[in-house]
């Protein structure tokens, strides 16, 4: 899609970047989505950004599925459990040779 210096950004990464910026704006303005906590969403988005730097683009689907599942789980479960779920899912994805 576009280059930033040496780095190439795909459509998914661009949207994730926009979502991250939008979440920072929401956090600053005090607005939040119904049922979701903005700081939780921002933390998960940042974690996804970090993980994305470590895995190749061909393994985008498992990463995004994990990300979306974690987002959905924040409605029902405490954030600490979601963080553990998020890291464990990468461990299991690696164990099952998905990523």
């Amino acid at each position: 899609m576009f280059y930033l210096g040496r780095f190439y950004f795909s459509k998914k990464e661009l949207f994730l970047l926009i979502a991250g910026i939008a979440l920072i704006v929401m956090l600053k303005s005090g607005y939040s989505l119904p049922y979701f906590k903005t700081d939780y969403l921002l933390a998960l988005t940042l974690l996804t950004f970090i993980v994305k730097g470590f895995i190749p683009t061909t393994h985008d689907s498992p990463l995004l599925i994990t990300f979306l599942t974690s987002l959905a789980l924040t409605i029902y479960f405490p954030f600490f459990q979601i963080i553990i779920f998020y890291f464990l899912s990468f461990l299991f994805l690696k164990m099952f040779r998905v990523i």
């Binding site: 599925i65 994990t66 405490p78 459990q81 779920f85 099952f96």
Partner: peptide, 25 residues
């Protein structure tokens, strides 16, 4: 395999928060 990994990690995280960690901290 993705679904299996997610389901497993959910149950392991539930076990950890219930038995190893105190009060979701």
């Amino acid at each position: 395999r993705i679904i299996l990994a997610l389901v497993l990690s959910f149950f392991v995280s539930k076990f950890l928060t219930d038995n190893i960690f105190l009060n979701y901290s």
